[in-house]
Structures are given as structure tokens and as C-alpha cells.
């Protein structure tokens, strides 16, 4: 259970901090604020998981100890979320690949047989519904925008595509979590995620 919580906590914390790097550097004021909003949502979610993990440990460690005082090797986040921001298109593509997984993951996690985990998921899925909407909109806009924006978002997906498989490949503790009923069966969400992605890319090519 602790490993599973740390996976969720680390994913959201690292992506939150990556998005936070945009603060003051966004391509426009409105987009800057949008990305810092997303960052704060994710950091808030990670706090819920870290607090739960710290409570489970019962060893007197706090959420901050778990978030900031563990060794790099102990982090369980997927590689996708730690990828550098790159240009705006790169950030959008990275977030879309994560969001389109995260949304379905949280939907499934709402059914967790662990009440506290299910409660965190219910709260988070509302935020992530908007995250997915935000990144989806920007994938379409950049893809259908100018020659330049199309090239950039395409380059970004080419660059990040290799990291998406990890999201659906369960670690042993994730399989254990799914079997015990508090986690998520990644196989069950993979088909839903794929259909979202193909629907979006079809929209994109349909508009061209």
C-alpha cells in the first residue's frame, strides 16, 4: 500500500513541480496562470497521498519528509512526468499523455475499496477532468494551428511517445494493489485511454 501511495504521490508531485517551472515564463499571462493552477492541483493531490503514506508508516515522518527528503532512487514516479518542459508544445504533449491516463486511472480509483484512497480520487478526478480538457484543447490547437505549431507538437509527441507505455505497465506493487481491490487494473483502463487518444488525433486530422 505504501509503495502504491508513493507512486501516486511522486507522479503528481514531480509533474506539479515541472509545471511550476513555467511560473512567470508562460507564453501568455493567461496560459502562465493556467499552468500554475494545474501545478497547484497536482501538488495538492500529492500532499493527500504523502499524508496518507506518512500516517500508514506511523514512524513520525511527515508529508514533507516523504516528498523532499527521500533519495532520488526511492522515487517511484513514471519517467514521463519528469521530462523537462521543453517548449510549450512539449509541455502540452507531456501533460496530455499523462492526463489522458491519469483521468481514467482516477475514475477507476474512485471504486477503490480503501475509503481514504477513494475519497482522494473523487476529489482529484474533478481537477483532472479539467487538466485533460486543457491539454486536449491545446493539442488540437497546436496541431491545427500554424505550420510551426503543428511541427512543434508533432516533434513533442515523437519525442515523448516512448514514455507512454510505462503508464500501463504495472509494477509488482500495482498488481498487488489491483488484486487487493484498493488499486487499479491498468489493463481495464488501457482500452478507454486508447480510444480517447485516437478520437482526439482523428479530430486533429479531420480538421486539416
Amino acid at each position: 500500500m505504501r509503495d502504491f501511495l508513493l507512486l501516486l504521490a511522486d507522479n503528481t508531485q514531480i509533474l506539479g513541480h515541472r509545471l511550476g517551472e513555467w511560473c512567470g515564463h508562460g507564453p501568455e499571462l493567461e496560459i502562465d496562470m493556467a499552468m500554475t493552477n494545474l501545478a497547484l492541483d497536482l501538488i495538492g493531490q500529492s500532499r493527500n497521498y504523502y499524508q496518507y503514506a506518512a500516517d500508514l508508516e506511523g514512524a513520525g515522518r511527515t508529508e514533507d519528509d516523504l516528498a523532499y527528503l527521500r533519495d532520488a532512487r526511492e522515487f517511484r514516479n513514471c519517467l514521463l512526468v519528469e521530462q523537462p518542459n521543453g517548449d510549450f508544445a512539449h509541455t502540452v504533449a507531456r501533460n496530455f499523455l499523462f492526463d489522458s491516463w491519469h483521468f481514467f486511472f482516477l475514475q477507476a480509483l474512485c471504486q477503490s475499496n480503501d475509503d481514504r484512497l477513494a475519497a482522494i480520487a473523487v476529489k482529484s478526478v474533478k481537477e483532472v477532468t479539467y487538466h485533460l480538457r486543457w491539454s486536449s484543447e491545446w493539442v488540437i490547437r497546436l496541431g491545427d494551428g500554424t505550420e510551426e505549431s503543428h511541427k512543434r507538437i508533432q516533434d513533442a509527441f515523437d519525442n515523448l511517445w516512448t514514455y507512454r507505455g510505462e503508464l500501463l505497465a504495472p509494477a509488482p506493487y500495482e498488481t498487488e494493489a489491483a488484486n487487493a481491490g484498493y488499486g487499479v487494473d491498468l489493463h481495464a483502463i488501457s482500452s478507454r485511454k486508447c480510444s480517447t487518444f485516437s478520437a482526439l488525433t482523428q479530430t486533429q486530422s479531420g480538421n486539416e
Binding site: 499571462l29 493567461e30 496560459i31 496562470m33 493556467a34 493552477n37 479539467y130 480538457r133 484543447e137
Partner: peptide, 20 residues
Amino acid sequence: SLHAADAQMALEHARDVYTR
């Protein structure tokens, strides 16, 4: 007020900037 390319983007920007 805010800058946006179209109505949809304007709504989302408004959500992000004015309803936090």
C-alpha cells in the same frame, strides 16, 4: 478582460484567471 484566440479559449482563460 483577457486575450484569447476564440470564445472557447476565452472561457477557459477566464476560468483560469478569474475564478481561482
